[in-house]
Simulated assay, not measured.
Amino acid sequence: MQASETLLDRPAAFDERRHFQRVNVDLLGRFMLENRAEYPCRIENMSPGDLAALSPVSPRVGERVILYVDHVGRIEAAVSRLFAGGFAATVRASDRKREKLAAQLTWLANRHELNLPEDRRHERMAPRNPVVELALEDERRYRATIIDLSLSGAAVSCQVRPAIGTRIMLGTTLGRVVRHLEDGIAVEFARVGDGEALASRTD
């Protein structure tokens, strides 16, 4: 049984689940347990009230966890149940935070419906300094040149082509590889808006 099926088909354990529409997503992230140990995860579906995460480690039911999810940011949650290969959790957030999360999920749903590896609706920007350092997770570093830049992603010319899905750093901006180009890669930023800071950097 798929993680999304277990979350959607099982009767709600919390009343608030019934008030939110879940969005199928494919977001990388990590989560921290109460003992501060951190592990990677992949969010399969999410609403402003709950989420389903795939993970190699299973937290305890009822345990409070803090998730850091690409495009979404920090989320506090409580584990509601476990399933094979992951867990479901109820989001703990203020009404204002839930509204913001709903807006982010709407954007993500539209992006995936259009099958866009990055949000092409955002205006393209010209960086003040197109030369940037590209760092991989294993700490290898390369000189790269930004060809094209928006609030949500960039096309980068570089001598390496990491696998699609690989996390990288462009300067101090976190992103992941979403497509290979003829002379480089297309990068999707971890948060919408990160491209503005990258465009204005002068170092």
Rank of each mutant, 00 (worst) to 15 (best):
D203S: 13
L105M: 02
A109G: 15
I66S: 04
E133C: 14
E133R: 10
D70N: 08
P59L: 00
N35M: 15
L54T: 05
L136N: 03
Q159Y: 10
E139I: 11
L67W: 03
R161F: 11
T166R: 14
D183P: 07
T90A: 13
L7Q: 02
M32N: 09
R124E: 05
R176E: 10
V177C: 08
S47T: 15
A53L: 04
Y39M: 13
N129M: 09
G153W: 03
I66Y: 02
A154E: 11
R176L: 09
A37D: 13
I168P: 00
S200V: 11
T202N: 12
S4V: 13
A199C: 10
S80M: 04
M46H: 05
I164A: 07
A3T: 15
E188D: 06
L105P: 00
R92I: 07
G73F: 01
V25W: 00
L27F: 09
R120T: 12
I147S: 15
V79S: 02
P59G: 13
H112V: 10
K100T: 11
E34Y: 10
K100L: 09
L54V: 05
G29M: 02
L51P: 00
D138F: 08
L136H: 03
L116P: 02
G195I: 15
A13W: 04
R191L: 14
A53V: 04
Q159W: 13
H122V: 03
A78M: 07
H122M: 05
